[in-house]
Design a binder for these strands. Sequence first.
DNA 1: GGTAGGACCCGAAACGTTTCGGATAGCTGT
DNA 2: ACAGCTATCCGAAACGTTTCGGGTCCTACC
Lengths: 354, 354
Amino acid sequence: MAKQLPKTMVTMKDIAREVGLSITTVSRALNDHDDVALETRNLVHEVARRLDYHPNAMARSLQNNRANAIGLLIPPILHRAYDAFWLDFIGGAAAACAHFGSDLLLSAVSTTEGADHDFKRLARGRRVDGLLLCDVQQVDPRIDYLRRHGLPFVAFGRTMGPQDYSFIDVDGAAGVRQAVEFLIQLGHRRIAYLGVSTKFSFSSFRLRGYRDALSRAGISYDDRLVHQELTGPMATAVMAQLLVTSDRPTAVFASGDFLALAAEKTARSLGLDVPEDLSVVVFDDGALVEGSDPPLTAVNQPNRRLGEEAAELLLQRIEFREVPLVQRLVVPSLTHRRSTAPPRDYVRTMPLAQ
Amino acid sequence: MAKQLPKTMVTMKDIAREVGLSITTVSRALNDHDDVALETRNLVHEVARRLDYHPNAMARSLQNNRANAIGLLIPPILHRAYDAFWLDFIGGAAAACAHFGSDLLLSAVSTTEGADHDFKRLARGRRVDGLLLCDVQQVDPRIDYLRRHGLPFVAFGRTMGPQDYSFIDVDGAAGVRQAVEFLIQLGHRRIAYLGVSTKFSFSSFRLRGYRDALSRAGISYDDRLVHQELTGPMATAVMAQLLVTSDRPTAVFASGDFLALAAEKTARSLGLDVPEDLSVVVFDDGALVEGSDPPLTAVNQPNRRLGEEAAELLLQRIEFREVPLVQRLVVPSLTHRRSTAPPRDYVRTMPLAQ
DNA sequence: GGTAGGACCCGAAACGTTTCGGATAGCTGT
DNA sequence: ACAGCTATCCGAAACGTTTCGGGTCCTACC
């Protein structure tokens, strides 16, 4: 029994030699095919365990065209807030994968130009069985590309055009509508809107929610109150300018935590109190939101749960190829914190709900 | 030019047919070997682009035994705080991978029993070129296993025994020493210690830091003040019991955000003020820490940066096999917030540093 | 005019697995 | 005693790539 440490890789050939059978039989035994004698199967399994055999994932994938992994491209630009979101999302997706015996292949894209190439590499390289398509743009050629090449995918987010693919998304319109309606109910009439890049499709949905809430309440839309494509510093400038006008807004909706923080800070620096002089509601719950002073009332999307659901859906599609279209909209809820109050001189005319 | 949509996979064979060369030459052309005429190389590249060719990652890996990915097993038990840490860490690792043209394979382990099998599957399955070994235990057989099988790895964390492998770790002892010394400098003498499972090696290092700080200041160690293996509820119970004794602690070090939160809450429920009656310092900076009331003074490890460095180190080891041992200790810094103050009846006898 | 050397190309084997299409042996029933 | 069946096994091909060890020209040199 001159056993030596397994210096190198143990393959099925080693098992075959050890048990005196063919590689074919070893393979079929390991996969529990029923045309292998039970006795043989057990023997093979035992030897495999003794030799600490683990199949070569690459060889297996090459043969049966199944990678046992799904891919997720992390977008190149990750500003702070966004980052926290993705990480939650990823955590959820990884958990879902575990249940299906798959792994999650994370590919961080370094440069914006490299994004397209990385996408195709992943889509065509047979390294993953499907793709979690994130960061969906208003019109996104990747969707067509994936369909043309028959790679299963689930989008997280929606394009603006025809939606003939499965996706999971937050119902941004409903979320914002909820938030703005809450402000209106508190008595606010002049409500500013701070938005990020309109390249992302969620931007349009959110703005639509804002407009809907206003029009339902019979408040006319004032485009001087609406600003998009903002960064943190730009938001500060915008708010500084808005807050010194005579008909300044008494509330603001911010489409991202850093925008809300900028608004809070600007108000304070002008000697205004939050929430007494300015109510702030933010979309995108996260660490910053709770930690800010005062803590922000927020529309919160369940980031982790979204990742989980998206991955689950994708893995199902991979397993049972033809499943019907699933288009799931998650309606976010509003968490009431201390950044919202009725406008200072508002006389309540009716009892507030809740 | 009856071009049809690439219904199926495009392989090198297709390119070879198109340009009328052998597969060998196509391969060498694509990899820019210099025994292929420049003209031919260009032609092949162009055709490859036209056909939207992307190499089959599996076939390639099988051949040259290189997966272009590193693995990371996400531990099965992820309580809230821990979770946030991993996600930051993962974000950093993914970013580092991008620079090396590798991907990050995330494998979430569902059950505790499955952990060992999943580990070996990843370690032996040739699916990754190396492993980021996280969650290192006091004595960790995985380290030996990996070395025996020659798989490159970098540990995040240290075992207690001989450390003859590359790792990156937070210098927990230094971090805690810093924190406790700060408390002592404020005038505290009775400082409680709340710790988590001693299974993790960081636990011992942190406790050592605590003891060091005490002994340097000539304060004797009182084991009634030291509690480990705590969960949130247990910490509440412990603090409740400690805070009603006559010689109750005036400060507490908590080895995790949920422990600190429990301590804060318990103090408040007993009518004690934080920081006036009880100073709290926490290890492990994160969302909860900033958001708590009052915000916690914290020893903060740079989670994301740690992930980045660990992955970088691993990728270097993979690229240039034999590199010297790297054992890097990151000394965390102390962030002063509002949960710490001198003990109530303390008379300053010397000016405070900082 | 022979040959050495360089430039360019290719067939076949290999990586480790799965599977297709048999092959062999033993048993059943007539 | 032979066809037919079942139970068990196996050889060879295939997946798509890389590489080893050549091969065939052509030019240049003596």
